[in-house]
Design a protein around this nucleic acid. Structure first.
Length: 645
RNA sequence: GCGCCUGUAGCUCAGUGGAUAGAGUGUCGGUCUCCGGAACCGAAGGCCGCAGGUUCGAAUCCUGCCAGGCGCGCCA
């Protein structure tokens, strides 16, 4: 549809430029609110009215007859206060749709795009808040790839931070366990750490001297020395592997795991610090509260200066993040070493290393970077981007995007079901923030297990004869689709107040509804082959044949047919719209609406039992287009397509 | 205190300055000799937080107010 509209715009300019000041307005082509008003709407007479000091209706009436010359349009109307509505030549449009094989009319704009998402602290199991991040990030990456971009997906691992130190503290002081004993803890290790982590804060508070012990642990972890560093390494890597497995259940994968420990050991910060000092982007504080610190002044005057290096000489998190961002753009004159981390089928996921390795692919060197991090990190993200600008990397600063989104919170009801203790103060709130530290949260694997189980019951009901293994696989796909749609259906600025009933639903606006629709279409094609011997070859020759006569359709069916064909054609526009706004709910809701339209059509028009061959063929072609588009859309939002369910 | 975000149907949420503000869910009523009922059709349900302003046109933009949330660490 993008191409069709662009072509129309070009023609409109050719027809009208000499008589009307079109160059001073934005020529938009919208859709009419109702099909009886036509297919496309031109609101530009309203804009012209202002410039030409005439009524929009008059201008529209004057221009409309001239537009009948537009190729692909066979009727032009004026409507409302001055809209020009266009009626597409349906037969021609459909014929063209039959013949075009071009997949996407979108084109790439970047050399390489780096998408960082997930980035969970490797000290506990992943929870539903993390799932929102990963689902958004993965969908972004899929859409960018569809657009033709070269995309590298990175997952940042803070394997030397206080959160890992907390769990190390737990193993050393609370449990206590040796490295060997920790290694022999059976699965699920991430769940084990989840519980341990919640005990640490409480323990430290009630045991004097704990804070000093934790500081020492943190120092050893950062410096890579002692048993603390070995424990941290083991814990973080094992939990990272658990996270990757969880994400694999959602069909989410990565190219690179970028570790903070590598950034520290390779002294990325030193180079970044040097740059910042050279460009006078950071300066030393001699007096006052921040005496002895290196800080960065914020462009926003009202905000105070941000500390990059503490008075004790240790760099802050934001400082390290600036170094990492510089590396992503290839602006740091240093690179990581890399080694293979895990294999997923044929794919290898790599991890950074500070020790010399050889034979690795190229990472980093992006021309554009998306950081998917929740909105609470807006402030540090702003500083990172400003850091680039201060270093005169203006272009890179503009190509740095903080893809932010609101948090996932827990409803009071969901907390009851989780059977956790809630403080008096928290009980009156509308929702509660997830807190790994307090153990308040729904673990991703627990949610997926529940969905697996529930889906399996449904699959069992409908497909008792399938093998257990097959049924299980289908149930897993349904669980995946369910979570992914759920995480996508809300706008980024909307707090998701998690509720089990909503999240576990398979009816209405849900992933399984979309999957069910796809399964239904496939089932029709299967029956066409079983009952009539109509196979893939027959379909292809039907597509190629020019013998499609739409006039055989009765009027009401003609209009229903057209509504679907027009809607199917909008996919590329929806993808672009989602990418431009970074709101993938547009694509999700488009896919949902496509399914709604198909299901309504399905109930109204039978394909298998239709006796009129011409009508039957048109119906087959119609659902063929729906199937193709739905397939692409589902792939883009990462919802698996089961054959049966 | 300063900054950002949110307020739309009973509930959960969409809505790109454009035509009669839409979905899902829940409630009520229908469809079934049906290509898969995880479905479809219909009904009821709205001072789009409040008050001004800009505009041919405002749920959408601007200002003020009210209510709620999140940021503003030598935490990450």
């Amino acid at each position: 549809m993008i191409e069709f509209k662009n072509n129309l715009k070009k023609q409109i300019h050719e027809l009208l430029d000499s008589e009307y000041p079109l160059e001073s307005i934005k020529l938009e082509i919208n859709y009419t609110p109702q099909m009886k008003l036509g297919d496309l709407a031109l609101p530009f007479p309203f804009q012209l009215a202002k410039i030409m000091h005439r009524s929009p209706r008059d201008i529209a009436a004057e221009i409309a007859p001239k537009l009948i010359a537009l190729e692909g349009i066979n009727k032009v109307d004026i409507a409302g206060g001055g809209f020009i509505n266009l009626y597409i030549n349906r037969d021609k449009f459909f014929q063209q749709k039959l013949q075009t094989t071009v997949k996407s009319s979108l084109t790439s704009e970047e050399n390489k795009i780096i998408v960082e998402h997930t980035s969970i602290n490797p000290n506990k199991a992943a929870h539903i808040g993390h799932l929102r991040n990963s689902c958004l990030g993965d969908t972004l990456a899929r859409c960018l790839k569809y657009k033709g971009e070269n995309v590298e997906i990175q997952n940042y691992i803070d394997d030397t931070g206080v959160q890992v130190a907390d769990v190390v503290f737990g193993f050393m002081e609370i449990e206590p366990k040796t490295l060997e004993e920790v290694k022999s803890i059976p699965e699920k290790f991430d769940f084990y750490c989840w519980d341990l982590y919640t005990r640490v804060a409480d323990y430290i508070e009630h045991h004097p001297g704990s804070k000093e012990k934790k500081s020492k642990i943190l120092k050893n972890i950062e410096e890579g020395t002692g048993v603390e560093a070995k424990l941290a390494q083991h814990i973080s890597q094992r939990i990272l592997k658990a996270h990757l497995k969880t994400m694999q259940r959602l069909d989410i994968s990565y190219d690179l795991q970028a570790c903070e420990s590598s950034i520290i050991r390779l002294e990325f910060w030193k180079l970044a610090f040097q740059l910042l000092k050279e460009k006078k982007a950071t300066y030393f504080i001699e007096e006052g509260a921040n005496k002895g610190c290196w800080v960065m002044k914020l462009e926003d005057e009202s905000q105070q200066e941000k500390i990059l290096v503490r008075s004790n000489g240790i760099v802050t998190y934001v400082g390290k993040d600036i170094a990492y961002q510089l590396w992503k753009f290839g602006l740091l004159k240093k690179d990581f070493f890399y080694k293979p981390f895990v294999k997923q089928g044929k794919k290898t996921i790599w991890i950074t290393s500070s020790k010399k390795t050889t034979n690795f692919p190229e990472f980093g060197q992006g021309s554009c970077v998306y950081n998917i991090i929740d909105i609470r990190q807006s402030y540090p993200q702003k500083i990172v981007i400003q850091g680039l600008r201060s270093l005169k990397f203006v272009e890179q600063a503009e190509k740095s995007t903080h893809f932010s989104y609101e948090m996932v919170a827990l409803s009071p009801k969901s907390l009851e079901e989780l059977d956790v203790n809630v403080s008096e103060a928290d009980r009156d709130k509308d929702f509660l923030e997830i807190s790994g530290r307090k153990g308040l949260g729904v673990k991703a694997d627990d949610l997926l297990d529940k969905l697996d189980e529930k889906a399996l019951v449904e699959v069992e009901k409908r497909n008792p004869n399938l093998s257990v293994e097959k049924k299980r696989r289908i149930a897993q796909k349904i669980a995946c689709g369910s979570v992914r749609y759920f995480m996508l259906k809300f706008a980024r600025s909307s707090i998701i107040i998690f509720d089990f009933e909503d999240a576990l639903s398979f009816e209405g606006e849900t992933g399984p509804y979309l999957q069910y629709t796809f399964v239904r279409i496939n089932s029709i094609f299967r029956k066409l082959e079983e009952n009539f011997g109509f196979n893939q070859t027959d379909l292809q020759s039907l597509i190629k044949s020019s013998d499609i006569r739409l006039e055989v359709l009765p009027e009401s069916e003609y209009s229903d047919f057209w509504e679907i064909i027009l809607y199917v054609s909008k996919l590329d526009e929806e993808v672009l719209h989602s990418l431009n706004s970074l709101e993938f709910l547009h694509l999700a809701k488009y896919t949902f609406e496509l399914c709604q339209k198909f299901n309504a059509y399905y109930h109204k028009y039978s394909i298998l039992s239709e006796k009129n061959r011409d009508i039957k063929n048109i119906r087959i072609l119609t659902i063929h287009f729906v199937r193709n588009t739905l397939k692409t859309a589902l792939d883009l939002i990462g919802i698996p397509r089961p054959e049966r369910m």
